[in-house]
Simulated scan of single mutants.
Amino acid sequence: MTKTDISRSNLLENVRRVVIKVGSAVLTTADGLNPKAINRLADQLAELSSRGLDVVLVSSGAVAAGRQRIFERTSRKQHNGKDMASRQAASAVGQGRLMHDYDEAFARHGKVTAQVLLTRSGLKLRERFLNARNTMERLLEWGVIPIVNENDTVSTRELEFGDNDTLGAMCLGLVGADLFVNLTSADGVFDRNPDGNPDAKPIPVIEDIASLDLEAMCDGKTSVGTGGMYSKLRAARRAAQLGVPTLIVSGKGEFDIIDVLTGGAGGTLVLPEDRVVSSKKFWLAYHDNPSGAILVDGGAANALMTKGTSLLPIGITGVEGCFDRGALVFIKTADGSELGVGLTNYSADEICRIKGKRTDELPAIMGPAPSDVAVHRDNMLLDAAI
């Protein structure tokens, strides 16, 4: 879909597959999971499925569900730790409870669900990513509604995706979705954080999300989630790069997702970019956190941004961090401005040896060189939303 084809009234016309992300602030209360919220969500998504759409749900709530279950048996004070091990343990307890509640809620509409637990490291290898894609494709062919969450128990960073907004954006490329719906506790996006600015104005449509200063707009997080509006807008910007529109809308109260998707009021529609990146470039840019940075001079920066060239050693001025061949790295100018990210053909130590050198000088320095270029243009995404 292009921008000219998209309005709130025709949002569903060309959609065959939708990823819907729901946050902890929508699904939980101070006491744990909210059964009414889960049943209401299942009602809405079952209706979308019955209309012929493939539905993928990315759901938070496992940690809150686990703590609720533990507190039923022991004191809240004893098990209210917020360290990583406590969160992972609570998630291990809560995943089963969360899926049980979803299973029952969707079964009322004759819908079958499947639990899909992902880790960023699990999607890092292209072969595993493609295998996960094949599995998801088969589930959707069977009419099953996949319910996706991060595999918190084995994640090695807190947490690898950082938040389920990021995971939701990754799922867009994983399943080839046409629409991203992010259900949150806020009624869309405002020009300033409404928590501290009572006069903040809602933004019904964002036409060019890449032009926005997201950090200036968003300075708060919800109390029970790990995201906040910043992560939702960053996920929407990534979706826009794939050519996928995003609807950020409240999932609280008696919301009606069908009404919102067919022209109803509320929420914010983020339009896709005109220039769409390939799913492979999307995957390589966002499958991992960058391990370091390659610094380039003005000539190289201009060639990358205006001519679509690969990054040659002669344009490199330095490195930041320590990384191996094949690592995802930032590409920056000397003043720290980020141009994009890419997969490097050389380690940090090797780049220090070949920086500023012509291609014909590499064999004398390196012997058999792995490549004439430091980062190939096919393995690079400029203006990445990291």
Rank of each mutant, 00 (worst) to 15 (best):
R128S: 14
T29R: 00
P290I: 01
V19W: 02
R353V: 04
G220V: 08
R17S: 09
I386G: 03
P313K: 00
G336R: 05
K201W: 05
S60M: 01
S231D: 07
T359K: 09
E141I: 13
L33E: 00
A300M: 03
D360H: 14
E104Y: 14
G266L: 07
G188V: 07
A30D: 01
Y230N: 12
V55L: 11
S50T: 09
A177P: 07
D378P: 09
G367L: 06
T268S: 11
G23I: 07
G228V: 10
I6R: 02
A186W: 05
T166H: 10
I294W: 02
V175I: 14
G251E: 01
V276F: 07
A132L: 00
F255L: 08
D195I: 14
K357Q: 03
K355W: 04
T222V: 08
P146C: 07
S231A: 15
P290S: 06
R69G: 06
N289T: 13
D199G: 12
S291A: 15
D378V: 12
E158D: 15
Q241N: 09
I38F: 07
N164Q: 11
G267P: 10
A240T: 00
D219Y: 13
V260G: 07
T222M: 11
H287D: 04
D288Q: 12
T317Y: 12
F323K: 10
V277N: 02
T246C: 13
S211M: 09
L343I: 15
L53Y: 15
A62E: 00
L311C: 08
L247M: 11
I331N: 01
K201S: 13
V296D: 04
L45S: 05
